[in-house]
Amino acid sequence: MGALSILTNQRFKGVLAIAIYLIALVSSLGVAYYYNEDMNKAKWQADAWMNPVVTQEEEKSMKWVRENTKERETFVTDIFGGEHMMGESLREGTEGGDWAIIPNVVTRMSEVNEFYKTSDAQKASEIAKRYNANYAMIPNRQIFAGFEWLWPEKTKLQNTQYFELVYKDGDFEYYKIK
């Protein structure tokens, strides 16, 4: 009876009602705080995907590509270079695009990665020819061919028996595969 009389007491009910409104108010402030936190976290996560990766020299070179190579010409490229090239010039890269529809794509990625990594000119040339590439893009950035980010190894490109420099803008270069 005692507990019930407290529950039915008008003052108690008033206090309880105020308590519920206060809890709702404080919780709303908490929700607002975490709303801001979650939104910032979302922006932080998305921000990592905003990098264009490709360089302005790469973009600039598209004019030369369009003027000096045939449509759908194949270049040795990494993923980002190949996709940028197809989008800007309708040429093709040894890498880049919808990998899920490509047969033996992992082997291809591994070999293109090796093209950029090796200092062996003959080996690099053989890889390029295996994938019908007549040119190689040597970007002024790290490349990503599916496994690791790395700077292109350039000494092999000095071997004129296999490679011929056809375009240069600072450190950005195209070589013709001989």
Binding site: M39, A42, K43, A46, D47, W49, M50, N51, P52, V53, V54, Q56, E59, F80, E83, H84, M86, G87, E88, G96, G97, D98
Partner: peptide, 21 residues
């Protein structure tokens, strides 16, 4: 939150965006 797409000199390339281009 979507305005970040305007920030860089080039549109984002992660996620095969350029194959659609």
């Amino acid at each position: 939150t979507h305005w970040m797409v305007m920030r860089e000199w080039h549109m984002p390339t992660y996620g095969n965006t350029m194959i659609h281009v």
